[in-house]
Design a protein around this nucleic acid. Structure first.
Lengths: 171, 171
DNA sequence: ATCAATTAGTTGAGCGTTGAACAACTACTA
DNA sequence: TAGTAGTTGTTCAACGCTCAACTAATTGAT
């Protein structure tokens, strides 16, 4: 490796700010979700994805892709969600290796209960602090960062999953 | 709580992009740090803070503040770092409740070994994707987010700790 | 000087994540 | 039609974090 290209002061400042903002914001939202709805953000994300898909069920593999989690992580998570009665597993009819994860009514209810507070948190801690221009800037910056690392990231696709639910929430 | 103020399309897009970027970027940097230097980012952060402070030692309490971790988390982390020989604990001379965490030469060596690769990662995955204007925008946005949640966040202070090390690295 | 309140730090249990190893099934190739 | 390679999902052990409980020392008020 060649001589390290250190960060200049502007970069240093931006980097530290970005790091701080990410940690502070997501920690805060996690804490709120845990406190108000007794669920970690990872659960919330899984429920959101399942809720937006026709039939409210998905192959584990697809669910893993859409939530960007490892198979292992998802398997554990779904087991825990099953324990709460929020998700049910069933065998995949046309591929005996496969498992389908399905959102139960209880799971949907938990999500409907959790969503407004979470969205409120996102608004309070993020969008209420930014001008409309900054919202656009943030999006452009973040898309530029994600694209090279994950060329077709599911959260950046313009058409959202089922196109189904007209007005839903932000994960 | 009043009727939820849902996110409009711009906000939805910005939110998802920000979420994706944070996860993707920090996951990537974590993985690289783990692979190349066998240390999680949390360790790296602790080593950086200790390395920048005169005497390379700090009260646990101060170290917890500067790394924004809970006392418990820090205590566990320092124990693990002690196990690797990268940090040593000693009693605080003027407060018998206190403990000082001190960076060892081995710890400093591990940091010096890890830093260039990590900085390179930050540059590759973040700054190489952004224009100078975007770097400024990102900083302003992130500072606006952090400030209300953590009024005097250590990473946002203009004067960096000891002012000591002229050219160091970005955490 | 005494006693409550506060501060510093540790510990242990439980949760969630990771990475590697594994079993079961499917798809491809000869 | 084998036989090999790839896919799907689970399990286990190790790691790190959180939360609550705890010990010990200090501060502050009477």
């Amino acid at each position: 490796m060649s001589r390290p290209r250190w960060l200049n002061d502007d970069e240093q400042g931006a980097w530290r700010a970005f790091y701080a903002a990410s940690r502070v914001l997501f920690d805060q939202l996690d804490r709120e979700l845990q406190r108000d709805s007794d669920m970690p953000h990872a659960y919330y994300e899984i429920l959101v994805v399942l809720s937006e898909v026709p039939g409210r069920e998905l192959r584990m593999r697809e669910l893993a892709e859409l939530t960007r989690s490892s198979p292992s992580r998802l398997s554990h998570a779904v087991s825990r969600l099953e324990g709460r009665g929020w998700v049910r597993r069933r065998e995949c009819p046309d591929d005996k290796r496969g498992q389908l994860a399905m959102l139960t009514d209880e799971g949907m209810a938990a999500l409907v209960e959790a969503a407004p507070g979470h969205v409120e948190g996102v608004r309070t801690h993020l969008f209420d602090r930014l001008t409309p221009q900054q919202v656009d800037q943030l999006r452009a910056i973040c898309e530029a960062v994600v694209e090279p690392l994950v060329p077709d990231h599911p959260l950046l696709r313009r058409e959202g999953l089922g196109t189904s639910a007209g007005r839903k929430e932000g994960p």
